[in-house]
C-alpha cells in the first residue's frame, strides 16, 4: 500500500469516526444526570437536521442551525416534562422502555410533518465536491467542521461539568439522587436540563453531519446504534473518551475495508469492541471505580 493510500484510508476513517463521535457525545449527558441511556438520542439528531434544512430556506445557514438547536432543546424539555418528570423513582428498565417508545413516536411524527424524502444541508464551506488535498489524499472540509464541533462540545462540557454549580449538581444527581435532593438540588429540574443539553447536542450533531450523511425521517436509528456503541467503547459518561473511541472505531473500520470485503466492516469493528469490553467493562476511558458505583 502506498503512503498516500494509507493516508486516504486514515482520512476516510476520520470521516466516519467523526460522525460516530459527535453522535456519541449526546448519549453521555443524560447518562451523567440520570444514569440511563436515552434511546431517543438518534431522533434528536434527525430532528436537528430536518429542522435546520427546513429553516434554511428562510434564513442564513448559521441562523437556521442555531434555531434548530434551540427548537430541538425545547423538544427535549417538553419530552421530559410530559413523559419523565412525573415518574417518582424511575427504574433503568422503565426509562429504557419510555425512551424507545419516544424514539418511535418522534420518528413517526417526523414522517408526517415532513415526508419520506432524503434531504441534506448545504456544506458549511465549499460545495458537495470540494475537498482538501493533504499528503496526496483528500478530505472533505465538512469533516473538519465535524471534528471542530466535537472538540468545541467536549471542551465546553468538561468546563461545564467541572466548574459550574449547575454542572456539578447534575453530576451529583447521577451519583446519588437522594443525597443530591437532600443537599437542596432540584433533581427534576436537573433532569429536564440534561434532556435539553442532550437534545441540543444531538441537534447540532445532526446539522454538521447532514451534508455528509444526509437526513431523512429514519436516519436517527442507524446513527444512534453506532453512537451508542462508541459511547460504550469510550466509557459511558466520558465525552472525551467518546470522541477518541469514535475516531478509533472509524479508523479500524476504514482499514479493515482495505484487506477484507466491506461487508465485514462492522463485524471486525464490533469484535474489537467486544474484546475491549471483556477486559475493560467500563470502556477504554472509563474508570473502574466510577464504573463500580453505577447501576447501569
Amino acid at each position: 500500500m502506498s503512503f498516500s493510500l494509507i493516508i486516504q484510508y486514515l482520512f476516510s476513517g476520520i470521516t466516519s469516526g467523526g460522525i460516530y463521535a459527535i453522535v456519541a457525545i449526546g448519549f453521555n449527558i443524560i447518562y451523567n444526570t440520570t444514569g440511563i441511556i436515552n434511546f431517543a438520542q438518534g431522533e434528536f439528531v434527525m430532528l436537528g437536521g430536518m429542522i435546520a434544512i427546513t429553516l434554511c430556506h428562510y434564513m442564513p445557514l448559521s441562523a437556521a442551525v442555531a434555531c434548530a438547536v434551540a427548537i430541538t432543546a425545547l423538544v427535549g424539555a417538553f419530552i421530559d416534562f410530559v413523559f419523565i418528570r412525573w415518574l417518582k423513582s424511575p427504574t433503568v428498565l422503565q426509562m429504557v422502555i419510555i425512551t424507545i417508545g419516544l424514539s418511535i413516536l418522534i420518528r413517526e411524527a417526523a414522517l408526517h410533518i415532513w415526508d419520506e424524502k432524503v434531504r441534506s444541508l448545504p456544506c458549511f464551506t465549499g460545495n458537495e465536491i470540494s475537498s482538501i488535498r493533504l499528503l496526496g489524499a483528500y478530505i472533505s472540509p465538512q469533516v473538519l467542521w465535524v471534528l471542530a464541533t466535537c472538540a468545541a462540545i467536549v471542551i465546553c462540557l468538561n468546563l461545564f461539568f467541572s466548574y459550574t454549580l449547575t454542572g456539578r449538581s447534575m453530576r451529583a444527581c447521577s451519583a446519588n439522587r437522594t443525597a443530591a435532593a437532600l443537599c437542596g438540588i432540584n433533581v427534576r429540574n436537573m433532569v429536564t436540563f440534561s434532556f435539553m443539553i442532550s437534545a441540543a447536542i444531538g441537534a447540532l450533531a445532526g446539522c454538521v453531519v447532514s451534508p455528509i450523511a444526509q437526513t431523512h425521517y429514519d436516519c436517527g436509528t442507524p446513527l444512534a446504534i453506532k453512537g451508542f456503541t462508541v459511547a460504550i467503547l469510550g466509557g459511558l459518561g466520558n465525552s472525551t473518551g467518546a470522541v477518541a473511541a469514535g475516531l478509533i472505531l472509524g479508523i479500524i473500520e476504514a482499514f479493515s475495508v482495505s484487506v477484507l470485503p466491506m461487508a465485514f466492516k462492522d463485524v471486525i469493528a464490533i469484535t474489537i469492541l467486544l474484546l475491549v469490553l471483556f477486559f475493560r467493562p467500563t470502556g477504554l476511558f472509563g474508570s473502574r471505580e466510577t464504573g463500580a458505583l453505577r447501576e447501569f
Binding site: L5, Q8, Y9, S12, T15, S16, V209, L223, A254, V257
Partner: peptide, 17 residues
C-alpha cells in the same frame, strides 16, 4: 466488487479501495 449497507453514511473507504 463491493457490497455496502443500505444505511451507509460515508463510502470513502470503499472508494479508496
Amino acid at each position: 466488487n463491493e457490497v455496502y449497507e443500505k444505511e451507509a453514511t460515508d463510502l470513502t473507504s470503499v472508494l479508496t479501495k
